[in-house]
């Protein structure tokens, strides 16, 4: 195994660890919304520093690998993908923090029937599944699995589009709860953003493995 191989292996491991932590941050966000557990919010905020530190470590190792080993071809594509993926993961983690922040802002727990109406759980579980897919796809360099993320993103976009109408209905029905419903809509918006970022990760993975650029093109979903 060459020195570069060892560096790449280490960077891959770091990205997988960061994915795992970010996934857990997002999952805690869901639990925090459903259980109105403010301790979880603290936990998410505390872990945010770990996510940021991981991103900085990956950036540093990538900078070193570029400077010392001048990778080319598949190695260069991997490095470029890892660099972008770690930035995407950091932004997903920011969204998890943002979702958790709303728990501190709303006065009462969001009603389960309203969460169901806006398809909160369905959307959230799909977003988490997208992260599971990219984790496994990145670990196994499985682009078929990565492509499954594109289908799931379509569902997230659909739920997001409908969410605005549902939020308006809820606000009309109970205008005094307008803050809660606006926060709920904001959470849906953040999940839609998480979906976009997971999709970016899948695109980067496909670029790395297949040297295909899918960004800004219609997706092949298989």
């Amino acid at each position: 195994m060459t020195h570069l191989d060892l560096e790449l292996k280490q960077i891959k491991q770091q990205v997988l660890e960061m994915m795992s932590l970010v996934r857990s941050q997002l999952a805690k966000g869901k639990d925090a919304v459903l259980t109105f557990d403010k301790d979880l919010v603290h936990e998410i905020n505390a872990n945010e520093n770990r996510v940021n530190a991981m991103e900085l470590n990956i950036d540093r190792d990538i900078e070193n690998a570029l400077a010392l080993y001048t990778p080319v071809a598949v190695d260069l594509r991997f490095i470029m993908a890892a660099f972008k993926i770690s930035a995407d993961l950091e932004r997903i983690a920011d969204n998890a923090v943002g979702i958790a922040k709303y728990i501190n802002s709303v006065d009462t727990q969001l009603a389960q029937k309203n969460l169901d109406k806006i398809r909160f759980t369905e959307m959230y579980e799909n977003a988490l599944l997208m992260l599971d897919n990219v984790y496994e796809a990145f670990e196994k360099e499985d682009t078929k699995l990565a492509r499954q993320v594109f289908i799931k993103d379509v569902l997230l976009n659909e739920i997001n589009t409908n969410a605005a109408y549902i939020a308006i209905e809820l606000i009309h029905a109970k205008p005094e709860k307008i803050h809660n419903y606006l926060y709920l809509l904001s959470i849906i918006r953040k999940l839609e953003r998480v979906g976009d970022l997971a999709k970016n990760i899948a695109e980067e993975l496909i670029f790395y493995v297949e040297a295909k650029v899918l960004k800004h093109h219609p997706k092949e979903t298989e």
Binding site: D5, P71, V72, A73, V74, D75, R77
Partner: peptide, 17 residues
């Protein structure tokens, strides 16, 4: 050649493997 070589032998050579 240096971003996406078509042949595995080329890739192995330029990446030092």
């Amino acid at each position: 050649i240096f971003t996406n070589p078509k042949q595995e032998k080329t890739q192995n050579y330029i990446t030092g493997r």
